[in-house]
Simulated assay, not measured.
Amino acid sequence: FTLAVIPMLNHSGGMQMFNAEVTGITHDKLRPRISQTAKGLWFLYFLLTAILTLLLWIGPMDFFDSLCHAFSSISTGGYSTRDDSIGAWNSAYVKLVITIFMFLGGVNFGLMYKAMHGNLRCFWRNDVFKAYIRIILVFYIFFVIAIVGRGQVTDLSSFTLDPLFQIISTITSTGLTVNNFESWGTFVLALLFLLMFFGSCAGSTSGGAKIDRILFLLKNSGNEVYRCIHPNTMMSVRINDKVIAPDVVSKVIAFLCIYVMIIAAGGILLTAFNIPLVDAFFSSFSCVSNTGLGTGVTGYGESYAIIPASGKWVLSLLMLTGRLEIFTVLLLFTPGFWRK
Score class of each variant (00 low, 15 high):
A70V: 00
F273L: 07
S80Q: 03
F282W: 05
L48D: 10
I258S: 14
F273K: 10
F1L: 12
V148T: 05
K312M: 10
S75Q: 05
S169T: 04
K29L: 15
N119Q: 13
A146Y: 01
A305N: 13
N180H: 02
T291I: 10
L195R: 09
K340I: 07
N274T: 13
T186Y: 08
F1A: 15
Y259Q: 11
N220S: 14
L269C: 09
F1P: 12
K39T: 14
M234E: 01
L195P: 10
L54T: 12
Y300R: 03
F187A: 11
V107K: 04
G24Q: 06
E21F: 14
K242N: 15
W89Y: 14
T186K: 13
F193G: 10
S12W: 10
V5P: 10
T99N: 01
I168M: 03
S72N: 09
F139K: 00
D84I: 00
F273G: 00
S250I: 06
T172V: 02
G267D: 00
A115E: 00
G118A: 07
L331W: 09
F64P: 06
Y304S: 01
A146R: 07
K251Q: 15
V249K: 00
V107I: 14
A209P: 04
T298S: 12
S91R: 01
L137P: 05
S284N: 01
A70L: 02
F216V: 15
H11S: 06
T2C: 12
H27S: 15
S183W: 06
N240T: 06
S221G: 11
L176M: 09
I275R: 07
D83Q: 13
S66G: 15
G105A: 04
D279V: 06
A254E: 07
T205P: 00
L269Y: 03
P60A: 14
T233V: 13
D247M: 09
G78C: 04
A305W: 04
F43G: 13
K312C: 03
H27I: 07
D155M: 05
R31E: 15
A4I: 05
L192Q: 13
F159K: 00
L161C: 05
A202M: 06
M17S: 03
T23E: 10
R213N: 14
W57G: 10
T334L: 08
L52Q: 14
V138P: 05
T291R: 05
L9R: 02
M17L: 15
F159M: 04
T291A: 09
A131D: 05
N274E: 13
S204E: 11
A4C: 08
